[in-house]
């Protein structure tokens, strides 16, 4: 019996060590030394200042390892007051992240029952969230409190056959959601990058239009064969659309009219860049999903 007790104790100790180590990734923020979090902010500001001055340009200023429910982080969205939200690829669980301190603020769920699907993008427009699935369905819902399940309204864009959607952003200048196509089925759009504008009407109605850009212009001098965007966001300074592509590991900026501003490879390590957001305080945030390791968000100085 002594031997048995000794082994159980040893294993529990081992499990305890594992808990503590994994707990590094998920302790209660209230227990965390607030000075530690503030030092993160200070470190981030210092790194941003360096990047701004040209020193360490293109290098990440911060990278946070996301909790397991965001291992397949798929879309990022910023609210007008600068809060960052992320969602998972398969379940409609929305997580608010503090990208400066590297903390999870809250999580809430879409639908009274667990809503599952192939969710690819998230946008915030006029006090509502819009979650986009790959078949072109938009789920509209309000922001929920911690752990809350919120009701949603589904809008079918009827574009599921034409396009496999991968990202959504809100263009406040013309009050529309911009939907990015990863793969297009329409023959007329062969060798084109296609974006759809889904204008939000005041009465709930919507109007569709499209923006097409020749792939040759998108690719430019980059060694890419294609450009399959995985997310889209708005540049708050220029009003341009900024797209990221996981497969090509590329970044593309377009004017709302569809002119290419730049296309370039992503700097840093990005195993599968699935989300993009640009904050009003000049931070580019790239979300990467991963299969075995944790998902990440990586922060860069923007411009």
């Amino acid at each position: 019996m002594k031997a048995f007790s000794a082994t159980v104790a040893a294993l529990l100790l081992l499990a305890g060590t594992g808990c503590r180590k994994s707990g590094e990734g998920a302790p209660d923020a209230s227990k965390e030394d607030s000075a530690g979090l503030e030092s993160r902010v200070a470190r981030l500001n210092e790194a941003l200042a360096k990047a701004d001055s040209g020193e360490a340009r293109g290098k990440p200023v911060a990278r946070w390892l996301l909790p397991p429910e965001l291992a397949e982080v798929s879309g990022l969205a910023l609210t007008p007051d600068g809060r960052l939200f992320a969602h998972n690829d398969e379940s409609a669980r929305i997580t608010e992240l503090d990208y400066r301190r590297g903390t999870v603020i809250k999580k809430f769920f879409v639908g009274k029952e667990a809503l599952r699907g192939d969710f690819e993008g998230l946008a915030y427009a006029r006090d509502r969230f819009y979650l986009l699935s790959s078949d072109g369905t938009l789920y509209e819902f309000r922001e929920g409190a911690e752990g809350e399940r919120v009701e949603f309204t589904a809008h079918d864009t009827h574009l599921g056959r034409e396009c496999e959607f991968e990202g959504v952003a809100f263009d406040s200048t013309d009050n529309s959601l911009v939907l990015a196509c990863k793969n297009v089925a329409e023959k007329k759009f062969k060798d084109m990058l296609v974006l759809y504008r889904y204008t939000l009407g005041d009465s709930g109605g919507a109007k569709l239009s499209e923006v097409t850009v020749p792939l040759a212009e998108v690719i430019g001098r980059n060694p890419w064969k294609h450009f399959r965007p995985t997310d889209i966001t708005m540049d708050p300074y220029s009003g341009n659309y900024v797209l990221v592509a996981a497969q090509e590991k590329g970044l593309l900026a377009l004017t709302p009219a569809g002119a290419v501003v730049f296309s370039r490879p992503l700097s840093g390590r990005h195993p599968q860049a699935e989300g993009i957001a640009i904050t009003r305080d000049s931070i580019l945030i790239i979300g990467d999903e991963s299969i075995a390791a944790p998902g990440t968000i990586t922060l860069y100085h923007w411009h």
Binding site: C19, S22, A26, D28, W64, E146
Partner: peptide, 27 residues
């Protein structure tokens, strides 16, 4: 090798934690 920790079960432990969390610094 943290990937070992991941497959041993820390993923499940992390999932059990709700509310405010501090994320690991990847840099």
């Amino acid at each position: 090798f943290p990937v070992v920790d991941h497959v041993i079960g820390s993923a499940q432990l992390d999932q059990a934690v709700s509310g405010s969390q501090v994320l690991r610094d990847g840099l």
